[in-house]
Design a protein around this nucleic acid. Structure first.
Length: 129
DNA sequence: ACACTGACGTTAA
DNA sequence: GTTAACGCCAGTG
């Protein structure tokens, strides 16, 4: 069974929507929750593919690297800075590293549920509607 | 087929 | 605490 890219992206989006406010998780953890533990890079690819304004809103800015740093989009881009602003606006404490990188304390803000917990959350979402 | 890239992760030093 | 070297895998040229 081959994996459809669109299907993977959709799976990523449904999981990212479940991240609570003021919490962050990593690309790799999203990949695990989607059942693709070695596709962390493609989680980033899925988020990059995301349009600016989505309905429902997908909190892409709550996804950071496993080391607790906001991934750089390369020099000359402002994506990382916008991500930091979005997190700060939510009340997340973002510290500025020496080399201009942005760090978040995962022990405080990290959100790393199991697949079962995510399934339970999806069940609750379905009931709420 | 080949080399290189990327919003990544783990490990070693 | 840090950086460097791999491993990873779908796209791209």
């Amino acid at each position: 069974m081959s994996l459809d890219v669109a299907e993977f992206h959709a799976e990523v989006y449904t999981i990212v929507r479940l991240i609570p406010p003021c919490r962050v998780t990593s690309y790799g953890h999203i990949a695990k929750l989607a059942g693709m533990p070695n596709h962390s890079r493609h989680v980033g690819q899925a988020l990059k593919f995301l349009p600016a304004n989505t309905t429902p809103l997908i909190p892409w800015y709550r996804v950071i690297g496993a080391s607790g740093t906001i991934s750089s989009r390369g020099p000359g881009t402002d994506g990382a800075r916008r991500q930091r602003n979005a997190l700060v606006a939510e009340g997340v404490d973002v510290t500025d590293g020496r080399t201009g990188d942005f760090r978040i304390d995962l022990r405080t803000y990290g959100w790393f549920p199991t697949r079962d917990e995510v399934r339970a959350m999806q069940q609750i979402e379905a009931e709420d509607v």
